[in-house]
Computed example of a mutant assay.
Amino acid sequence: MHFPDGHGAEMNTFRAMQPVGDATRRRQTADQLTELIVTGELAAGTKLTETGLASALQISRGPLREAIRELVEAGLLVSQPYKGLFVRSASPRDLQEIYSLRTTLEQFAFKECWAKRTPAALDDLRGRELSLRQAVDDGIAPTAAIARELHLHSWCYELSGHALLLQSWERMKSNLHFYFSLHQQAHGRRGPRREAHDKYIELACGDDLQAMLSHLEEHMQQGLKTTLTFAEEG
């Protein structure tokens, strides 16, 4: 069979491509819903329906349900029996508990990892902070900025070598993702301030563990009051 110039190569390219399957549509749908929640376009407490979402996103029920299940497991959506599906909301107590537990866990992580900070490990930490700065400078999607901020804070847990501590951190990530989304909305930003982690990195690479532990208390407290006020007003 003869194709016009260039058409044969195009057909070969098409053959190499795989059809967009339900898994891809689920991923795209989950990412889009996450973005809408993180940016506040879907406000905390908003009730959602499968029919409405399927129509708005032009997606079939199968991959939509998988995407919803993923976001429920991530803590961004809440499915209440006999009531429906809602964008997660948080009480002041919820936010205070996230703050206090996160502070305690991260202080413990630094105690555990302090003696394990090799030059290579510190270079890794600086690289994660640089990646976050680049995200802020480039104005990338809020969800991507949150992922990079979580990756930065994961460093001390990973380096600690404490398996149960790392498991606790992984389980807490969904709560932190939600907290960071509220934090960004409260401050009207797409991500953290560019210089937000300067002191954190300086002390993490320094010699004074007690100064690091004290800064963690202060670092975690930053923005909590504004976020609490935002959540209460919302």
Score class of each variant (00 low, 15 high):
residue 37 I to M: 09
residue 37 I to H: 01
residue 38 V to M: 04
residue 39 T to G: 01
residue 40 G to E: 06
residue 41 E to Q: 15
residue 44 A to G: 10
residue 44 A to R: 06
residue 48 L to R: 05
residue 48 L to F: 11
residue 48 L to C: 07
residue 50 E to Q: 13
residue 54 A to L: 04
residue 54 A to F: 03
residue 55 S to E: 15
residue 59 I to K: 04
residue 63 P to L: 06
residue 63 P to D: 04
residue 65 R to K: 14
residue 66 E to H: 12
residue 67 A to P: 02
residue 67 A to R: 02
residue 69 R to P: 01
residue 69 R to C: 05
residue 69 R to H: 14
residue 70 E to D: 15
residue 70 E to H: 12
residue 71 L to K: 05
residue 72 V to S: 01
residue 75 G to A: 08
residue 75 G to E: 05
residue 75 G to C: 02
residue 76 L to G: 07
residue 77 L to E: 09
residue 78 V to H: 06
residue 79 S to V: 06
residue 80 Q to P: 00
residue 80 Q to E: 15
residue 82 Y to M: 07
residue 82 Y to G: 08
residue 84 G to N: 11
residue 85 L to W: 01
residue 86 F to N: 02
residue 87 V to A: 10
residue 87 V to I: 10
residue 87 V to M: 06
residue 89 S to K: 08
residue 92 P to R: 08
residue 92 P to I: 02
residue 93 R to V: 15
residue 94 D to Y: 08
residue 95 L to G: 02
residue 95 L to P: 05
residue 96 Q to R: 14
residue 96 Q to L: 13
residue 96 Q to C: 10
residue 97 E to C: 06
residue 97 E to P: 02
residue 99 Y to D: 12
residue 100 S to D: 14
residue 101 L to Q: 12
residue 103 T to K: 08
residue 105 L to M: 15
residue 105 L to F: 09
residue 107 Q to F: 03
residue 108 F to K: 07
residue 115 A to N: 06
residue 115 A to K: 07
residue 117 R to C: 09
residue 117 R to I: 05
residue 118 T to G: 09
residue 120 A to L: 12
residue 121 A to H: 03
residue 123 D to V: 12
residue 124 D to V: 04
residue 125 L to E: 07
residue 125 L to Q: 09
residue 125 L to T: 08
residue 126 R to K: 15
residue 126 R to G: 01
residue 130 L to H: 13
residue 130 L to M: 11
residue 131 S to R: 14
residue 133 R to W: 04
residue 133 R to V: 08
residue 135 A to V: 05
residue 136 V to P: 01
residue 137 D to K: 11
residue 137 D to R: 15
residue 140 I to D: 02
residue 141 A to S: 15
residue 141 A to G: 00
residue 142 P to Y: 03
residue 145 A to Y: 03
residue 146 I to L: 12
residue 147 A to P: 01
residue 147 A to E: 13
residue 148 R to L: 15
residue 148 R to C: 04
residue 148 R to M: 11
residue 150 L to I: 14
residue 152 L to H: 05
residue 155 W to S: 07
residue 155 W to K: 06
residue 155 W to N: 04
residue 155 W to C: 02
residue 158 E to W: 09
residue 158 E to C: 00
residue 159 L to I: 09
residue 160 S to Y: 07
residue 160 S to P: 00
residue 161 G to H: 12
residue 162 H to I: 04
residue 164 L to M: 13
residue 167 Q to S: 13
residue 169 W to G: 00
residue 172 M to W: 02
residue 172 M to E: 02
residue 172 M to K: 04
residue 172 M to T: 01
residue 176 L to W: 08
